[in-house]
Amino acid sequence: MIEEKIARGLLWFSVFITLGILFIILFHIISQGIFHISWEFLTETPKHMGKEGGVLPSIIGTVYLVLVSLAVATPIGVMAGIYLTEYTRNGKLVSIIRFFTETLAGIPSIVFGLFGFLFFVIFLGWGWSIMSGGLTVAFMILPTIVRTTEEAIKSVPMSYREGSLALGATRWQTIYKIVLPSALPGIVTGVILGMGRVVGETAAVYLTAGTSGFMIPSSVWEPTRTLSVHLFVLASEGISFEKAYATATVLVVLIFVINFLANKLMSVMVSKRQGVEV
């Protein structure tokens, strides 16, 4: 009985510690950073290596990077997810594809960075640019999008497909007009989670998109310094902890928003499905 109580206490304690750590980190970063965020910080270019001024070029660079990587990873990932669920659920090819997708998900970001540097920056001659960085990161988020698409498609009831096929629709018509619309919230959730990963990615972007962040990039062929890389440079070179706190706060708030959106979409999906089942 005593063991039971101790065990229960320890389990509560582990959750308490986990949430406590999260709270301590967020509280520390935001409470220190919020006072250094101003309109100027968000709308000006950095001065004196980032000691003064704002982070506008980094914000724009981050947005560019997100757009490029999603534009590449979303179609490929969603199409792969469709193939793995609607065309061949089992079989050798699928298990091979799945193994490689898992492997891709496990490769460390610095290795992606090395590859992107070799392939895009040097081999294709694109230099340090948003394009090089965006494509490198697109490969990194591909597994996330494939997996969430698969999950979303699997959760579409079989009766939907049967109804559509019975009406004489072809396989692709069924997928395009029936399955995909029902799975859309789940797929979008995956894309949003991928977005969060792009925003937070540092090592791979550092080696492929560069670190120069004093000018607003005018095209995807220019280098940029994303918010995460900016925070890393500020912190590792000890340039300005005030600006680092402010940048970290911007990043954390962005992740808040992204997670909130993903959760909202997920609950939309769940309630929609429940409405149909009943």
């Binding site: 229960r8 389990l11 509560w12 959750v15 986990t18 949430l19 999260l22 980190i25 967020l26 520390h28 970063i29 989670l193 969060g196 925003v199 937070g200 990615e201 540092t202 995460s228 890389v229 925070l231 890393f232 912190a235 680092a244 970290a248 990043l251 954390v252 992740i255 808040f256 992204i258 997670n259 993903a262 959760n263």
Partner: peptide, 28 residues
């Protein structure tokens, strides 16, 4: 063990923990 209500708080917490950029942890 977790009651539903506790689960509703803990789950987004863990998602947030997963979402926070690694460089922010490093900075902290």
């Amino acid at each position: 063990f977790a009651p539903k209500r506790v689960n509703k708080i803990v789950r987004p917490g863990i998602e947030l923990l997963a979402g926070i950029p690694s460089v922010v942890y490093g900075f902290w």
